[in-house]
């Protein structure tokens, strides 16, 4: 595991203490610089994450009050208010996104792992899916704007949900495929040998064997879309009151609310933005940690 140990272990025990004589100074200096540099890089990473979390906790708790869960966002210049409408709107958008993305993503991943395998079409789709996975999310916003907002003539929660679904789908496709590929082919063969048709084998053998992994993929996709802002700017927009039940018109949502309120001159808007930021980050970090634990559980088994 740690291949560096032998050198360290022998150095103090060696009979000749002037180690500098055995190793050319240039080599030692390069080694020291590497060790110092990479340790420093790791410390920077940890300090930055710590600083972000500290900022969120300090500023977020200042803006936290029970009111934020009961009152809608306040208008410009008015006092008090909460972010209840934005929380609900975000939940609705995320649920629409994940409800669309899950069946499409799982089925597409199933195609890649079970039917397409190494065919040319499957290779192409896998490649494009990987590209879609890291495509700029603002372009997805532009696409959904042209596809839904302009024909419908209004911003809507549906458009926002579809934009989020497009972001979530590649994540689910990728993890589903990876997880299905880990299922040993003997299990499939056993199912087929019993006379079950391929669809039945997939549904009751491979999916079941890979279920924890697929759930992880869905959780990761949830974590990814819960904080997405750019695609919602042109699709769901935002709104300072409660939204219609038919989801037409601007739908208040946490990310866009944070964006608008954080840059606003009003004191109460800013503190609401911080409270929202704390809420959303804690949710997302919790989702990613849970997703990791699910993976670890299946691996342990």
């Amino acid at each position: 595991m740690d291949a560096r140990n032998p050198i360290l272990a022998t150095a103090p025990a060696a009979a000749y203490p002037p180690r500098a004589n055995r190793v050319r100074p240039g080599r030692r200096v390069a080694d020291k610089i590497l060790i110092a540099g990479s340790t420093l890089a790791t410390i920077i990473g940890i300090v930055v994450l710590g600083s972000i979390l500290l900022m969120l906790i300090v500023e977020g708790i200042k803006g936290f009050s029970p009111m934020i869960f009961t009152q809608p966002t306040p208008g410009p210049g008015s006092e008090g208010g909460g972010i209840a409408n934005a929380i609900l709107g975000s939940l609705v958008l995320t649920v629409i996104g994940i409800v669309i993305a899950t069946p499409v993503g799982v089925m597409a991943g199933t195609y890649l792992a079970e039917y397409g395998r190494n065919s040319r079409l499957a290779d192409l789709i896998r490649f494009l899916n990987d590209i879609l996975l890291s495509a700029p999310s603002i372009l997805i916003g532009l696409f959904v704007y042209t596809l839904m907002v302009r024909p419908m003539g209004t911003y809507s929660g549906w458009a926002g949900g579809v934009a989020l679904a497009i972001i979530a789908t590649p994540v689910i496709v990728r993890t589903t495929e990876d997880m299905l590929r880990l299922v040993p082919s003997q299990m499939r063969e056993a199912g087929v040998a019993l006379g079950a048709p391929p669809s039945h084998v997939i549904k009751s053998v491979t999916w079941r064997a890979a279920s924890a992994g697929i759930v992880t993929g869905i959780l990761l996709a949830l974590a990814r879309i819960a904080g997405e802002t750019a695609p919602l700017l042109f699709t769901a927009l935002n709104n300072n009151s409660w939204f219609n039940a038919n989801l037409l018109g601007g739908i208040p949502n946490l990310p866009v609310m944070i964006y608008q309120f954080a840059l606003s001159p009003y004191q109460n808007w800013q503190s609401l933005a911080w409270a929202g930021a704390l809420l959303i980050t804690v949710t997302i970090l919790a989702l990613s940690i849970v997703a990791r634990l699910v993976i670890k559980d299946t691996r342990a088994r």
Binding site: L49, I52, M55, L56, A223, R224, A226, G227, E228, T229, A230, P255, I258, Y259, A262, A273, W274, A277, I280, T281, I284, L285, L287, S288
Partner: peptide
């Protein structure tokens, strides 16, 4: 996994 808007803030 920290959302990009948090990095912005």
């Amino acid at each position: 996994s920290v959302p990009s808007i948090i990095y912005g803030m």
